[in-house]
Amino acid sequence: MFLYDMTIDRLAPYGALIVPNNIDEEFLYQHRDSIAQFLEQGRIVVSFAQLFLPWLPGNSLWIRSSLDTNARTILAHDEHPLFRGVTEYDLNYRRGVKGFFSRGYFEAPAHAEIALWDNSGQTVVYIDRHTTRGTILAGAGTDLLAYGLSDTTTARRMGQQLLAWIDREYNFVFTTSIRS
């Protein structure tokens, strides 16, 4: 589905919506009610955008890290299913150069699960299961689907692990919301 064809009716067949980093946020802002409705139906929104408009429920706007790229390190919980088997080096370096993965952060909503953070404790990726009846995975300009896809490093795992996580999350959220 193309972005400009998005309506709540057209979103109905989908369990998840993946929003890439370079997206027309003004359009999403105009359709923020449809996105909120989609989430209230127990669906999933995965956003890699550096939000400058409040279209995603519960999200703060993107904040540029005050740390220099060379001083900033991205950290993940080794056991998190999104980052299992991905080394810290491969999160932070691509072909020997540091800083491609994330240059900013979010202030995570209350009760959000922090999946990725930087060495100053700022949230880079969070999972929010409380703001809506659905699930929001928001990365501060981090593209878990495509980062490392063309490399042979451990970062290549993130895309496949993200898709598997979406499938598990949707089945959990959907079956839980039906019972409620």
Rank of each mutant, 00 (worst) to 15 (best):
N119M: 05
Q160V: 07
E79T: 03
R103P: 00
T142K: 00
A164Q: 15
R72Q: 12
L67C: 12
Y147T: 09
D167E: 10
L162K: 06
F101D: 07
R84N: 09
T132P: 15
G99A: 05
V86Q: 04
R157T: 00
V124E: 07
R32K: 13
Q161I: 02
Q30V: 06
D151T: 11
L61P: 01
R179N: 06
L163Q: 08
G159E: 05
V86C: 08
A36H: 14
A146P: 10
R103L: 08
N119Y: 05
N92L: 01
G58C: 04
L51D: 03
T73Q: 10
G99C: 03
G15P: 11
V124Q: 03
H77Q: 11
K98D: 04
Y147Q: 05
G104S: 00
V97A: 09
W117C: 10
A146N: 15
L11D: 00
Q160G: 14
T87M: 07
V125M: 08
A108P: 09
F106A: 01
Q50C: 07
S177T: 13
F27E: 06
G104P: 05
Y170C: 04
L11C: 00
E40K: 02
N21E: 15
Q122A: 11
Q160D: 12
S66C: 08
A12D: 01
V86I: 13
G121C: 14
G85S: 10
S177E: 13
T87W: 12
Q41A: 10
V45M: 03
L17Y: 01
V173D: 01
E88F: 12
L39T: 04
T87D: 11
M158Y: 03
A110G: 12
Q50N: 05
V46S: 08
T7W: 05
W55C: 06
G99V: 03
E88V: 08
L53E: 02
E113C: 14
A16W: 03
L162N: 03
A140S: 13
I178K: 14
F100S: 07
I74W: 04
I114D: 15
F172D: 10
D128T: 10
R103W: 02
S180Y: 08
P54D: 01
F100M: 07
N119W: 10
T7I: 11
T154Q: 00
G96L: 13
Y89V: 01
Y14L: 06
L91K: 03
Y89C: 04
H31Q: 02
S177D: 11
E25Q: 15
I18S: 05
V125T: 09
R156Q: 13
I166D: 14
G148T: 12
Y89F: 06
R129F: 01
L17I: 09
I114Q: 05
F83K: 02
Q161M: 06
I136R: 02
F52N: 03
L67N: 06
P109S: 08
E79Q: 02
W62V: 00
E40P: 07
K98R: 12
Q41N: 13
I23P: 14
L51A: 04
L91C: 06
F2G: 15
V86P: 06
T7N: 10
D78T: 06
R10C: 04
R10Q: 11
G42D: 07
F38A: 08
Q161H: 12
A49W: 10
H111G: 11
W165F: 15
A71K: 13
H31A: 03
Q160I: 09
E88D: 10
N70M: 12
L3C: 10
D9F: 13
R103Q: 15
I63S: 00
A108T: 13
R168I: 02
L3N: 09
